[in-house]
Design a binder for these strands. Structure first.
Lengths: 141, 141
DNA sequence: TCCATTTATATGAAAAATCATATACCGAAC
DNA sequence: GTTCGGTATATGATTTTTCATATAAATGGA
């Protein structure tokens, strides 16, 4: 029998558990995306705009968890690919609002459907709902 | 009154909520680390080894959510800084096991104490325990 | 109006992470 | 013991992300 090793700090540390759970579950879906040839950054932006939101670069940063210079470059790329469209906000000409093109909306709809199906495989609906209830206030901070 | 905008997909998508909650809460602690001059990568490795674990590079990758080449380089750096020590596993000479030095243990202990204090500020103990219960099986996948 | 401050995005330089691959080693089959 | 396939870590090249800063525009006074 092996010697008892003593519990590791991270085995019962909320922030590590949350990061690991998030990475494990998201990783499953990200591997599916990769098989479809869809970069994770593309998915995040399409999902954030789906079905018909107009978000600024800054709002996309918060939703996709990227820094602003990164987001500007991602938005450049998706714009070149014809999936999204940029527009200067007339009420505040510093702001750039982004929304889906028709082609982007179609792509977002199909990926989102698969995301929902994956979510349903991860947890029964009642457990998923309970978990979301706990996560929502944390996500807002 | 503004027109109703239609719910966004990501407002009720488990994987986004989990990633956003994780980033929001971890971000709070990471800002404190930055103020202390401690890189996040350093904290993750010290926490994973605390108080006295001997982990391989591969196990550290899983714990810290980094890829293997990244981890090899992080371990190089912390070794140079005298916080951890590498050793070839005599039972399998391909493996490199890593553990804290005395100096690393002291640093890990003090950071972990602050991490616990932060965790306690995030959620009441009973809610944190309930959340951990839900996250644990997901993190194991 | 003019100026100072703050906010939103863009961009060049730098840093960090990752991919592809090399090396070293293990274990099993022969 | 030799070979073959698989596993663990290391490393060069590349990509991705970020930092620092610039530009442009809004905001709140003097």
């Amino acid at each position: 029998m092996l010697a008892f090793m003593g519990a590791r700090f991270t085995d019962d540390y909320l922030l590590f558990l949350m990061a690991q759970a998030s990475a494990a579950i998201s990783g499953e879906f990200h591997r599916w995306l990769a098989a479809e040839g869809v970069p994770v950054a593309t998915w995040r932006i399409l999902a954030s705009l789906h079905p018909d939101a107009a978000l600024t670069i800054g709002e996309l940063c918060a939703s996709c968890l990227a820094k602003q210079p990164t987001m500007t470059r991602m938005v450049d790329r998706l714009t070149r690919e014809g999936l999204i469209r940029r527009a200067t906000d007339p009420d505040d000409r510093r702001r750039v609002t982004v929304r889906l093109t028709e082609s982007g909306r179609a792509r977002a709809a199909s990926l989102s459907a698969e995301a929902r199906a994956h979510e349903a495989r991860v947890l029964p609906a009642d457990q998923a709902a309970a978990l979301k209830e706990m996560l929502r206030p944390l996500a807002r901070r």
